[in-house]
């Protein structure tokens, strides 16, 4: 499959996930709304990245801006689903992450190259926050995971970030020498993205706030 077809399929899946989220938006809780916002931002960044790749032959700067924003929004999402509402761990980590991203861009990986250092850091943080949320879900006896969409959202995050975590590092290494292998890595990352956004779309369509209320009863 040529890169353009892969790109259009990827954008279509992402758009479907957004449409699935927008459907019955008023019935969804604020945590889902944060995620839908993140999906819209991802869509815009992908379009910008495509445009930059064609117009200026380098789209890496898009990820320098998008990745820290993504971390802050995901931090807010984790705070909103964690049961101790007073804690703002996710948001604080997001802000610290954004500062680290700026430092990384200025001193280590400028706008023209992939900010893989930050992407690795981001992956680690999201996996950590996911495990922390799992702990909360495990200790809360009232939560029935089969009726609680946010549990499955965390499972999707864990799937996505655990696979892409080292693949990004591999991507950076291969970029230098093994161009042929790099193509395979890109395809793996593309497949993981397709599975991830399809699953997110499914959770957004299947689970509503009513189901969450049921889980918390």
């Amino acid at each position: 499959m040529d890169p353009n077809s892969r790109y259009y399929i990827y954008l279509s899946v992402l758009l479907l996930a957004i449409l699935g989220g927008i459907r019955k938006l008023n019935h969804k809780d604020s945590s889902y709304k944060i995620l839908i916002g993140l999906l819209c931002l991802t869509f815009i960044s992908e379009l910008t990245s495509y445009w930059a790749a064609i117009k200026i032959q380098n789209n890496m700067f898009v990820y320098h801006f998008f990745a820290p924003l993504q971390l802050i929004i995901l931090g807010k999402y984790f705070d909103s689903i964690n049961h101790n509402k007073k804690q703002k761990i996710g948001f604080i980590i997001g802000i610290i992450g954004a500062i680290i991203a700026v430092v990384n861009t200025i001193y280590f990986q400028p706008l023209k190259i992939l900010n893989s250092n930050f992407l690795l850091f981001e992956g680690l943080v999201i996996m950590g926050l996911s495990l922390y949320t799992f702990q909360g879900i495990l200790t809360n006896e009232k939560i029935d995971i089969y009726k609680y969409g946010h549990f499955w959202m965390i499972v999707i995050f864990i799937f996505f970030w655990s696979i892409t975590y080292t693949w990004w590092a591999l991507y950076t290494v291969l970029q230098e020498k093994e161009r042929f292998l790099l193509l395979n890595v890109t395809q793996v990352l593309w497949a993981v993205n397709i599975i991830t956004y399809s699953a997110i779309g499914f959770v957004l369509i299947y689970f509503s706030s009513e189901r969450k209320q049921l889980a918390n009863e």
């Binding site: 696979i163 975590y165 080292t166 590092a169 591999l170 290494v173 093994e178």
Partner: peptide, 11 residues
Amino acid sequence: IPILVAGSILI
């Protein structure tokens, strides 16, 4: 590369 591939599987 082998370390990263192993990590990609183990994580």
